[in-house]
Design a protein around this nucleic acid. Structure first.
Lengths: 231, 231
DNA sequence: CGTCGCGTTGAATCGCGTCAACTTCGGTGG
DNA sequence: CCACCGAAGTTGACGCGATTCAACGCGACG
């Protein structure tokens, strides 16, 4: 029995599709959305080349998206937190172009693309928010690209933590202490750095008193200094 | 007198907003679009933080988009060719977040965001194409990120030429010979490499017979070998 | 003719990747 | 609950690829 889960009472709504809608409209949106069975760690939600029937919204947990290079290696292109929408690459030609995998136990909302399209005819706010979210992702992606291109390993990692921290804050969670659901290898892959470099930088940041790391747990001690590093 | 310029007879239409529209609908779209005065090299079309009233479509010429880092340095995030749409980052909160500058004499179509939004209520095809274009950009941006992260300087540059070449081909131009409207410094900035590295790689690719470069002119001699390099 | 932006080339440096050894964590089964 | 084993993480030594610094060539333009 999961009928108590609705957009109407979802704390991620302000970050998600309901943002520009009034209560009545949110109800309309909610009526086309299915709650997905919980995903376990390593479960694949989206498989590249599959027909794209749904967008997904993260309700709880976290995921990574990746493509495969010519040797079959993962190229991580995104980490998803609650409130994030997943599956936009399926809108290009009707098939997904990447894989999305749960990093921990995760709950998703399943949004049928076709119903969403129909509903967006009636609800200008929905249409705008959809475009707003994709544009925003596009912008983040481009600036991230610029940042990675022009910065050292330390700056990249600092930037990664600063961004992650602010995303947690947006979601009403602590920006100072959080758990990394991804491995060091995932972070390295995402930032274009080797696992060893990530590990070395972490001990270095810790030695310099910027943060503390214990396994997956991160406590940021000097956010302003970290932000200064990130440039 | 530029009244002969319309979406109806624009060769870039299949790449642009009209893609999913029938002739009558294209006419509706055309009626909200203004032709922009020609831009000269170095003219700024979009200034970061300005209110975003328009999207722009490139009719001819080319441009670069960039943000500024904390020291005021350019971070190039995109090169735009005919048929491309510009200005999506203005949809996030109503203000542009980057700069866009002409690399040569350039003609733009000016699309009022508000009218576009209204028209997209009536035209599902317009709505879908808009979302399609942004999603597609998003996907390119993410995979580019993955590519740059995981590849050597040579692979990056090869990838750059392969992509550029295929974009020219999509636009009905030669995929074998084209003119680079951007400088070596621009390319290096975009790919996260120094000018010197770009220069060295170009002479090397030329020495290996993959392509020929004379100033801005590029002739690709062995597209398949270039593609193999890009991986 | 001189200047300035752009591009090329060489030499020296260094940041990060690679390889390798070792430790710790976490899950699974007895 | 503990023993075990593979996955994940850490640390050190070494090498290489790309940056940096510097000098120079070339064409455009006043």
């Amino acid at each position: 029995m999961t009928s108590h889960i609705h957009c109407q009472n979802c704390s991620m709504a302000p970050l998600c599709l309901p943002y520009l809608l009034n209560p009545e409209q949110i109800e309309q949106l909610d009526s086309i959305i299915q709650r997905h069975r919980p995903l376990q760690k390593r479960d694949l939600v989206i498989h590249s080349d599959d027909p794209a029937k749904f967008l997904y919204a993260v309700r709880s947990g976290s995921l990574k998206s990746y493509t495969l290079d010519s040797q079959g290696g993962e190229q991580i292109i995104d980490f998803h937190l609650p409130g994030d929408l997943i599956g936009f690459d399926g809108l290009i030609d009707g098939n997904y172009r990447s894989y999305t995998q749960a990093l921990e136990t995760t709950m998703l909302c399943e949004i049928p693309i076709q119903s969403l399209d129909q509903l967006s005819t009636e609800l200008p706010g929905l249409r705008r928010q959809l475009l707003r979210v994709v544009s925003s992702e596009l912008y983040s992606s481009k600036t991230l690209l610029g940042n990675l291109n022009h910065h050292s390993a330390q700056q990249r990692l600092a930037q990664f933590f600063v961004t992650l921290s602010s995303r947690f804050q947006q979601r009403g969670l602590s920006s100072r202490e959080f758990r990394l659901s991804m491995t060091r290898a995932d972070i390295g892959n995402y930032l274009g750095l080797s696992v060893e470099t990530i590990s070395r930088l972490l001990t270095q940041l810790q030695r310099d008193g910027l943060l503390q790391v214990q396994n997956k747990l991160v406590a940021i001690h000097a956010p302003e200094r970290l932000r200064a590093l990130a440039v």
